[in-house]
């Protein structure tokens, strides 16, 4: 009896040791490099810094500076404004065009499978490659884009050197880079619409427009939700492309500055000033997190309800 029980308890302890061993490395890495940094990110926003060390608790001072004290607040709102523009532009151009391409691909015309591979190709490339490639192609004198415009007699502008065209040019490069993603996500959503449903609607004399409006659009609502949310998160984390194409300060004249660039400059110093402020940077990071998490939460609830309604 006692012998049996000891045997069982030994087995148990060995088994729980084995389980602990399996869980240990992943838990350790997650704790050190995700959990602890995330908790500290919130804490640091309330401190001022002495080099790499948090020095004094300053309450909401860092938040006050980035939100209400000029020139910091001007930079914050200027950057935020551009993030909003980027989101709206990507919703219309990237996701709008992606929807049309997906619908075209749904027809399964010859070559549709090759097209899926082609449209997704830039997605696997680094934003650094895409950014530099388009920077060269958009060069005012030697770039291919203005070269092509020349052929039809138009003198193209200095796309990236001009305050009115710079942000739009970078958004264009982003659309080219990422359009394959929403295209294939929406296409997968459309392909889940049952064949019998489409067949039946067709027999009832429904045209493409009726199919789109009354059958496909309502049924792909879950895919649309995901695409909208991911576009929002992507627009507010925008960093690589403007960094490569317009530089750290969002040139020309801050017309391409976004929160990601402003955060990087504040936390890790800009080329020109060399100022580094971890306190303000942490406050910015917390604000960005709250905006993204808050809007995502509200939007998700709204979009999920919409999915059920239509």
């Amino acid at each position: 009896m006692t012998k049996d029980r000891r045997f069982i308890s030994r087995l148990l302890s060995r088994r729980s040791l084995w389980i602990a061993f399996l869980l240990l490395p992943a838990t350790l890495v997650m704790t050190l490099f995700v959990v602890w940094p995330l908790i500290s990110a919130f804490r640091f926003a309330f401190y001022d810094f002495n080099g790499l060390k948090p020095a004094n608790f300053v309450g909401f001072e860092n938040f006050r500076q980035v939100l209400f004290e000029s020139p910091f607040s001007d930079w914050t709102y200027n950057a935020l404004y551009h993030n909003v523009i980027v989101f709206c532009a990507l919703m219309v151009f990237e996701n709008g065009i992606a929807f049309l391409i997906a619908f075209g691909l749904l027809k399964a015309l010859p070559g549709h499978r090759v097209h899926q591979v082609i449209v997704f190709l830039p997605v696997v490339l680094s934003a650094v490659i895409v950014g530099f490639l388009w920077k060269l192609l958009l060069h005012p004198l030697f770039g291919l884009v203005n070269g092509a415009l020349m052929l039809i007699g138009i003198q193209g502008p200095a796309w990236l050197g001009n305050e009115t065209t710079a942000l739009g040019s970078i958004i264009f490069a982003n659309v080219w880079h990422w359009i394959g993603f929403p295209t294939l996500v929406l296409l997968a959503g459309m392909q889940r619409v049952g064949q019998e449903v489409l067949e039946a609607a067709r027999l009832d004399g429904a045209g493409d427009w009726d199919l789109l409006k009354h059958i496909i659009w309502p049924l792909i609502a879950p895919s649309v939700t995901i695409v909208v949310i991911l576009t929002f998160i992507g627009s507010f984390n925008w960093f690589e492309l403007p960094f490569v194409m317009a530089g750290l300060t969002g040139s020309p004249g801050g017309s391409t500055d976004v929160l990601g660039l402003y955060f990087y400059r504040t936390a890790f110093g800009s080329v020109t000033s060399g100022i580094q402020d971890f306190g303000q940077g942490s406050a910015l990071a917390v604000l960005m997190f709250l905006v993204v998490a808050g809007v995502t939460f509200v939007a998700l609830r709204y979009l999920r309800r919409r999915e059920i309604e239509i």
Partner: peptide, 10 residues
């Protein structure tokens, strides 16, 4: 959670 936003403590 996006780890990029925790880059300072990281």
């Amino acid at each position: 959670v996006p780890l990029k936003l925790a880059i300072i403590p990281l």
